[in-house]
Computed example of a mutant assay.
Amino acid sequence: MSSLKPYLQLTRPANLVTAVADILAGMAIAQFTFSSFSPVYLVLSTLGLYGGGVVMNDVFDAKLDSIERPERPIPSGKVPLKSAVLLGISLLFFGIFMAAMYSVTSGMIAIVVAMLTILYNRIAKHHVFFGPLTMGLCRGGNLILGMSVLPESIQKWGFIALLPIAYIGAITLISQDEVHGGKKRTLYIAAALYLMVLTAQLTVAQQQGNILFALPFVLLHASLIGRPLWNAIQNPVGPMIGKAVKSGVISLIVMNASWCVAFGLWPLALAVLALLPLSILLAKVFAVT
């Protein structure tokens, strides 16, 4: 297990749980009835795509991490660089293959998500605007991958994928300063993006007639992301910003649960919310950021 842990650390297990929540939320938005076992292909797909994406993140950051985060698996020598490359590429291809097993549409979406992850890790992440945008597109694409369980739903509800783009854009914007500290202006921009997402969820829930059920979920989400962000605004040093990033990532589960209940699938919302303790537990063992 000790030799396996560095490889697991590369895949960010706590974050992988949030990717599964994306798929379930997308299925809820599509109003899928969960009458068959086949959507498990999409769950396996997102595990491969997300896992491969974060592994490749560490691959491309290996030189920088040797200076700023020498304890990470690759710079510490616990995982050889070539092994990490092979793991990352294999996971991405696994994610594409699993999606294609469900449908051609799902497979095409998975290819786009995989390409976006490479674009982010190789080029976009170093840009203050295109970095958050590209990472947000990855997460929005993941939600659409869940919606592809019923492809006709994408035309009607695909615009909702813009909100995870804004949300992840906020987290990525914050994370750019988690090593050296940052500016309050960046944190205020992130807060505005968070507020936009929360407001949009309540608006959709109202339109669907589920506002009373959705309100507790949205308020819980606001609390989980708001407190660490406020602390970071008060003291924008690296460790405080890191906590804001961590809470933003893990709280994606609550955001996805909110989407489930906004569309009337409250049993699924509770099932998604039950993933939160698992993600928190994994976050204590494996790095999130």
Rank of each mutant, 00 (worst) to 15 (best):
A200V: 10
Y188L: 06
F213I: 13
Q206G: 14
A200I: 08
M196N: 10
N210R: 06
Q206H: 10
L193A: 08
K184N: 02
A200P: 07
Q208A: 06
L195E: 00
Q207I: 15
M196T: 08
A191F: 14
L198Q: 04
Q201I: 14
V197T: 07
A200R: 07
Y194H: 11
L187S: 06
G209K: 07
R185T: 11
A205W: 00
G209A: 05
F213H: 09
L187G: 03
K184V: 05
L212P: 01
A214E: 04
I189M: 05
Q208W: 12
L187R: 11
A200G: 10
A191R: 00
V197E: 04
P216V: 06
L202G: 11
A214C: 13
Q201V: 09
T199C: 12
I189V: 07
K184M: 03
T199I: 09
T203L: 12
Q207Y: 09
K184R: 08
P216D: 08
V204I: 12
N210P: 08
L195A: 13
V197H: 01
L198S: 05
P216M: 11
A205Y: 02
L193K: 03
L195W: 00
R185W: 03
Q206P: 04
T186Y: 13
L215N: 04
K184F: 05
R185N: 12
F213P: 00
Y194L: 00
L195P: 01
L198N: 03
N210D: 15
L215V: 04
Q201E: 15
I189H: 10
L193P: 02
A214M: 10
